[in-house]
């Protein structure tokens, strides 16, 4: 395919993905706004006011970046896993597989759907958060970079999950038993300084720790880990996920017999 034809194929996939989740906005965009409002209300306003400061800022301010990031992670992941598995389930993935669309365009197309939904939800949740707390962004560059990298990383993870999934139950196992615990243990609601040394060290293996702290640095200017190191770790996780997803598409594992 020429570069122009690849561009057309990519735009087609992006259009299809964006139309898919906007058509069912009440299932894809609205729940995050409601859930995060409850988090802000309960953990931020009601309980947070009794906790006081954490990491040098009010507890409400402290949890906001983590909650926004939680919404980005779950939405970018959910978008790709459900879309790709849905295509596998109804065999419409064959439309793509029999076409000359290169694997990197397929990957990019699905990931762009996840990234756009993640970013759209981030904007919605940030608007909701601004009703509870004044947000003064410390570094727009860091914020945008972390949001982009994180949504790419978890879109890729969603695609990998979808490739291996055989049933709709399989696409819920990872978010329920892996993603949610990692998010809660990733420092959304607490500073790593509160953990005993052993658990603080164990937390270093959790990619959500870097995602949440880098984003918190971008918003508030505070972080439990070095921001440079956090970017290196997020980048490394993203590269590993990208090459593994590309490998799965190239070999056709679980896609071609």
């Amino acid at each position: 395919m020429t570069a122009y034809e690849q561009w057309v194929a990519l735009l087609t996939l992006m259009r299809k993905e964006v139309r898919r989740y906007t058509r069912i906005w009440s299932q894809t965009l609205l729940p995050s706004a409601i859930t995060m409002s409850l988090y802000f209300l309960i953990f931020g306003s009601l309980i947070g006011s009794r906790i006081g400061e954490m990491g040098g800022v009010s507890y409400m301010e402290f949890v906001v970046p983590g909650l926004i990031m939680m919404a980005i992670v779950t939405n970018s992941y959910a978008n790709v896993v459900s879309s790709f598995f849905g295509s596998k389930f109804n065999n419409s993935i064959e439309e793509l597989l029999v076409s000359p669309t290169p694997n990197h365009i397929i990957l990019l197309g699905f990931v762009s759907g996840g990234v756009s939904r993640g970013m759209l939800v981030a904007v919605i949740v940030t608007i909701v958060a601004s009703l509870f707390v004044d947000l003064n962004i410390h570094s727009y560059l860091v914020v945008v970079a972390v949001v982009a990298l994180t949504s790419i990383l978890f879109s890729l993870c969603g695609l990998i999950n979808a490739v291996f999934a055989n049933t709709f139950d399989d696409i819920n196992i990872v978010p329920t038993f892996v993603l949610t615990p990692l998010t809660y243990l990733g420092g959304v609601f607490y500073s790593l300084e509160l953990l005993p040394d052993f658990w603080a060290t164990v937390s270093q293996a959790n990619p959500l720790v870097y995602v949440v702290n880098a984003f918190r640095f971008g918003v508030l200017g505070v972080s439990d880990v070095s921001v440079g190191f956090a970017f290196i770790m997020i980048g490394a996780f993203t590269l590993v996920a990208y090459f593994y997803a590309a490998h799965l598409l190239r070999t056709g594992r679980r896609l071609r017999t």
Partner: peptide, 21 residues
């Protein structure tokens, strides 16, 4: 049948054309 039954006839064809550039 291997298309997304929730898409319109036109969308299915637009998408397939797009995959061929």
């Amino acid at each position: 049948f291997n298309f997304n039954v929730f898409e319109t006839v036109e969308d299915i064809l637009i998408h397939q054309a797009g995959y061929y550039g």
